[in-house]
Design a protein around this nucleic acid. Structure first.
Lengths: 149, 149
DNA sequence: CCGCCCTGCTTGCAATTGCAAGCAGGCTGC
DNA sequence: GCAGCCTGCTTGCAATTGCAAGCAGGGCGG
C-alpha cells in the first residue's frame, strides 16, 4: 500500500531547514508546531498531517507541493495523462458551474464514442463518423448565467 | 490559523463521488478506507490525513492536487489556463471535432470571466464594449474547423 | 409477511498525532 | 568552577484518527 515515505520526507525537511539557517526551535516556532514534534518528523518517527505539512512548507518558504511530492502524496508532475476530467476540475480560470458544464459536454462525447466514463479503455480510438447532436445544444447547457468575477 | 476547511472538502468529495456514480461503500472500498470513516469525512466531522486524501483522490480519478486545494492545503496554481487547453488536445478518448467543440466552449467561458485566452495581456481598458460574438458562433467555429480530415 | 441486499449513519475502541515538560550536551563569558 | 543560553532529543498524556461491528430504513422478489 504505497504508504508515505516518511523517512525521506523528514530528511528533506531537515535539509531545507539547515539550508535556511533555522534551528529546530526556530522553524518549529515559525511553523507553529512544537519543537519535539518537528524533531520527530525530521527523524521519520511520525508522519505529519496535511495541515502540519502545509505550515512547515509556509515557514520554509517552499511550495507545499514539493513537500507533498517528497512525502509521496502527490505524484511527480503527474497530469496530462490521467484525463481531461482532472484537468477540467483543476483549472482555476473557470468557475464550478462552468466546470460542470464542460464535464457534462465531455461525458456526452464519451457516451457518443461508446466509452465508459471511468473504466474507460480507449480501444481503437477511431472517430465516430456521425455527429448525433449539434454543438449548440451542448453549449446551451453551460450557458447558465452567472455574475461573479 | 486558517485551518482546513473540512466542510467544503467533504461536500466536494461527496459531489465528486455522486458524479462518478459510486455508492459510499464502493468508493470506500476503492480508496481502501472504511465506509463509516468516509461518511464522516464527507459530512465534515473528521479531517482526513494526507494519506487518506491521496487514496480518495486516486479512487475518484481526480488529481490529489485538486483535493488539497479544496481542503485549503495547497494554493491554486496559476499556470493551468494553458494546461486545460493542452489536456483537451491530448485526450485520446474524443475525436478532433469534439476537441474543437470543447475548446470553443472553454474559450467562451474564459471570455465570460474576462480572462484573456493566454495570447495577450488584457491591457488597461481595451475590453471591447460590444459583445463580439455569440456562443453559437463560437460553436460554429468548432464545427467548420473539421475541414481538415 | 419474511428474507435479502442495498443505501448511509452511529457507536465503542486501538492506534496515532501533536504537545508541555524536562533531559543531555556544547559553547561563551565571568 | 558554574551561570546562562544555545543545540537537539525523550517522556508521559490529551485529543484525534481510522476502523470493526452494528443499526435504521428503503426497495424488490418470493
Amino acid at each position: 500500500m504505497a504508504s508515505l515515505n516518511v523517512g525521506s520526507l523528514g530528511e528533506y525537511i531537515r535539509e531545507q531547514r539547515r539550508h535556511a539557517q533555522y534551528s529546530l526551535r526556530q522553524l518549529a516556532d515559525a511553523a507553529g508546531v512544537s519543537n519535539p514534534y518537528l524533531s520527530q518528523i525530521e527523524r521519520g518517527l511520525r508522519k505529519p498531517s496535511a495541515e502540519i505539512l502545509q505550515q512547515i512548507a509556509k515557514a520554509l518558504r517552499i511550495s507545499a507541493e514539493t513537500l507533498y511530492v517528497q512525502a509521496g502524496i502527490l505524484e511527480e508532475r503527474e497530469e496530462h495523462g490521467l484525463g481531461l476530467r482532472t484537468a477540467i476540475l483543476a483549472d482555476p480560470l473557470i468557475n464550478e458551474r462552468q466546470k460542470q458544464a464542460l464535464l457534462a459536454v465531455y461525458d456526452t462525447f464519451l457516451k457518443e464514442n461508446d466509452v465508459q466514463p471511468h473504466t474507460a479503455r480507449p480501444g481503437a480510438g477511431d472517430t465516430d463518423p456521425n455527429e448525433p447532436q449539434t454543438l449548440e445544444e451542448y453549449a446551451q447547457k453551460g450557458r447558465i448565467s452567472d455574475g461573479d468575477r
